[in-house]
Design a protein around this nucleic acid. Structure first.
Lengths: 243, 243
DNA sequence: TCCCTATCTTTACATCGTAAAGATCAGATA
DNA sequence: TATCTGATCTTTACGATGTAAAGATAGGGA
């Protein structure tokens, strides 16, 4: 889109494989793996390399810049190479999102482990949630942009499911209840939905720059993290109908 | 993307303007507005027609299907016609989002006006918020997908600003305070952020199908609206740290 | 009457996703 | 050891998209 900036792509032979095929013999001739092959025809671990390249592209150029061809360029292979490993763009993006969910879960678990005081234990998870999103805005945006993902992929389904389970358990712990996997009371469901909606909504609005107006009007120097904490801990409940 | 389904587009002359130019005289010849012109060369109100076409395309085929060419097809004009009115895709999409914000605000205002009991007055706005998103998922998704919008456009900036102002005022009313435009206490900011995050997060999760797991585990027949209400009214505050 | 200008259409081009066919190579099989 | 097979990667090709630029067509004033 938008005319793109550079990248001619007319340059064939993605990786300079040191072939230096001088003559243009139409016959394949099977050039016998010329002694100093810089990079072999077979990459060896292209799948992982592509996923890492994709993450770099995503965080560098944003969601719109995450294309199959850009990832292939970043990895130094031909533009059709990713297809073999991921089927299509949705496949690549879904695998990347699965990685994101695993990073995300790991961040929250380790934040919980590090918490010591009761207040820290209460805030560790939401703070880690927002912190991950701020540190990896591209990844977070990808993970919650359903239209580009394929949740029927086991890796993605599992990873996002684990994310939800962790949340539900944390809420259960707050309510000193064992949240059974199969049934919820309305109160339990409301508690889970409230916590998740609040943190997810805050994060989304923050990343979209929609909280800037609020932050600017707060006492000078107030950070998003402080706003989050105030939002989560303040017990002042509005008493009258709005509108 | 995805190979598309149909639409040949090889059919030139978007609208059948009844020209029936039999001979192929290379010279323009200025065919004198043949008596029964079905649709004139100049549409007359193409800008509005394009915006309406865009909304139809958006709700019918989703965000990914909302392309300049698809909108032009829907409106029956050449694929480059929208460019003249909106500059580029971002322009069209931003104007459409502005319309969305205006519809959205109107829906909340009228819901507030219709509320009578105190409980209704408290819930009218959030319920209208979610209801709009459910009725116009494409529009809602568009409005909060920042990466495709250009907030420097006055119409969009104003409309979304009005949306925020309405929210802030509603929170102010709940707290029986006058929320001054330029400064906020941390408590006030937290109250606004909490309300907005909660409702926006709930809506986003709901539209992305991520609350399905919760809804299925609630007492049989519980609707999203009931969950929202429980989420907003329940005063049971979690008492212990989580993790 | 003539021409200017906004509006709309054509044409063109770079990029994208994806399919299909060819090239390359590692390892099994004989 | 020589050959074959299948996985991996590259080429080539096609339709779709956004956007720029040039041509065609009126509507409305000079």
């Amino acid at each position: 889109m938008t005319k793109s900036e550079i990248k001619s792509e007319t340059a064939h032979s993605p990786r300079n494989r040191g072939t230096t095929s001088s003559s243009a013999s139409a016959r394949p001739a099977r050039r016998a793996a010329s002694a100093k092959t810089e990079t072999p025809y077979h990459h060896g671990a292209l799948r992982e390399a592509l996923l890492q390249a994709a993450e770099r592209v995503l965080e560098r150029e944003g969601l719109a810049g995450l294309t199959l061809r850009a990832v292939a360029r970043e990895a130094g292979v031909s533009h059709a190479a990713p297809t073999h490993h991921f089927g299509d763009l949705t496949g690549l993006v879904s695998e990347l999102a699965a990685i994101g969910f695993r990073q995300f879960n790991a961040a929250m678990v380790s934040a919980c482990d590090a918490a010591t005081t009761p207040l820290e234990r209460t805030l560790a998870r939401p703070k880690a949630y927002v912190a991950y999103a701020q540190a990896h805005p591209g990844m977070y945006g990808l993970m919650f942009r359903t239209e580009r993902l394929d949740y029927s992929r086991p890796s993605l389904h599992e990873a996002s499911e684990a994310s939800f389970a962790g949340l539900a358990n944390a809420i259960g712990a707050m309510r000193q209840e064992q949240i059974s996997g199969d049934a919820l009371t309305l109160d339990q469901g409301a508690a889970i939905a409230r916590a998740w909606s609040m943190v997810h909504g805050f994060t989304t609005l923050l990343l979209d720059g929609r909280l800037k107006d609020i932050l600017e009007r707060l006492p000078k120097g107030t950070t998003a993290e402080q706003l989050l904490q105030a939002m989560l801990t303040s017990t002042v409940v509005p008493k009258l109908p709005g509108c």
